[in-house]
């Protein structure tokens, strides 16, 4: 178990290193001089040169990468161009908002997707199955920013049930939660569809298995068979899917944060791109990469906890 965990952490570190390399190449190849952007159009050539020197832009490429790489592992992602604050601090300030949004999105998708998928599988071929099937495809097909805008218009502007913008009053948990409902729905609704379809498909497969026939032959109640004997296995591919899906939710979060004017890393990176604030872009992408890799590791550990066969191979 421990050796498995260490192996997986090593792999995660390798993935993050590759991501760092790609990120560095991308930033390096983008035209435009961060020093000129930072100083504005009225800066003199000397000022630009001084800043380039300070940011290390005059050094050889490999040295620049090495400094970036070592700095990143020690938590130093450089300073922001505009205010000069450390990038790590800026991103970590915003991260909890996005994390809350993602967790909210996962909660929506799991809370709705799993029961719907189960229901569709158990009543296969019925009208319920068809309605769930059509709705799933519909919510998968509609981009999350469209859902975000309509959710905002209907529930916040027209019905006035829920607040429209912001993340709620700091320290007031209830207020923060009500501010979370709509944006997290926008992030998670598409995933309700994915998960419902996934759960339906794997439930149908598991329900055909011979151990389910054994359970029926012992006269176990349908409810026990569906939820304890079948769903506990059918849920496993869904957990893996969610692990991968977090990446997509992170990009949905950008739209949700812009539409609902919420703070968060999505909003941060969007503003940073518009202002060519490259250290922020790099830092945000890197930290979300780490987040993604860690959440995937968590998904694998959850599967281990749910499936004794996987656990014993750890």
């Amino acid at each position: 178990m421990l050796s498995y965990f260490i192996k997986r952490l090593g792999l995660a570190a390798a993935i993050v290193s590759v991501a760092m390399f790609l990120l560095f190449c991308m930033i390096y190849l983008i035209p435009g001089d961060p020093a000129s952007v930072a100083l504005g159009p009225r800066a003199t050539e000397e000022m630009r040169a001084a800043l380039r020197e300070k940011m290390g832009l005059n050094q050889p490429v490999l040295v620049q990468f090495w400094n970036f790489y070592i700095g990143a592992w020690t938590g130093d992602l450089g300073d922001e161009v505009l205010s000069g604050r450390p990038v790590t601090t800026v991103v970590l300030e915003q991260l909890p908002y996005t994390l809350a949004l993602i967790v909210g999105g996962i909660t929506w998708s799991v809370a709705l997707g799993i029961p719907l998928g189960c229901w569709a599988a158990v009543s296969r071929g019925s009208w319920a199955d068809r309605v769930v099937g059509i709705l799933s495809v519909a919510v998968i097909a509609v981009p999350s920013f469209v859902i975000a805008i309509y959710a905002l218009l209907i529930f916040a502007v027209e019905l006035r049930w829920l607040p429209a913008i912001g993340a709620g009053e700091p320290g007031n948990l209830g207020d923060q939660l009500t501010h979370l409902i709509l944006p997290s729905l926008a992030v998670g609704l598409g995933w309700v569809g994915y998960i419902a379809r996934m759960v339906r498909a794997s439930m149908l497969e598991v329900l055909e298995a011979s151990h389910i026939r054994t359970a029926r032959a012992f006269g176990l109640p349908d409810r026990t068979i569906t939820y304890r004997y079948a769903l506990s296995i059918a849920i496993l591919p869904t957990v893996t899917l969610l692990g991968v899906g977090i990446g997509q939710m992170l990009s949905s979060a950008v739209f949700a944060e812009i539409v609902f004017a919420r703070p968060g890393v999505g909003k941060l990176v969007y503003d940073a791109i518009l202002t060519r604030n490259f250290p922020i872009v790099t830092g945000t992408v890197l930290i979300t990469t780490v987040l993604f890799v860690l959440l995937n590791l968590l998904a694998d550990l959850i599967i281990g906890a749910l499936d004794p066969r996987v656990r014993s191979s750890f």
Partner: peptide
């Protein structure tokens, strides 16, 4: 009832 397939007759996660 005892079924033919001993490998799959028991639930793998319980």
């Amino acid at each position: 009832t005892v079924f033919q397939d001993p490998m799959g007759a028991l639930n793998p996660v319980i």
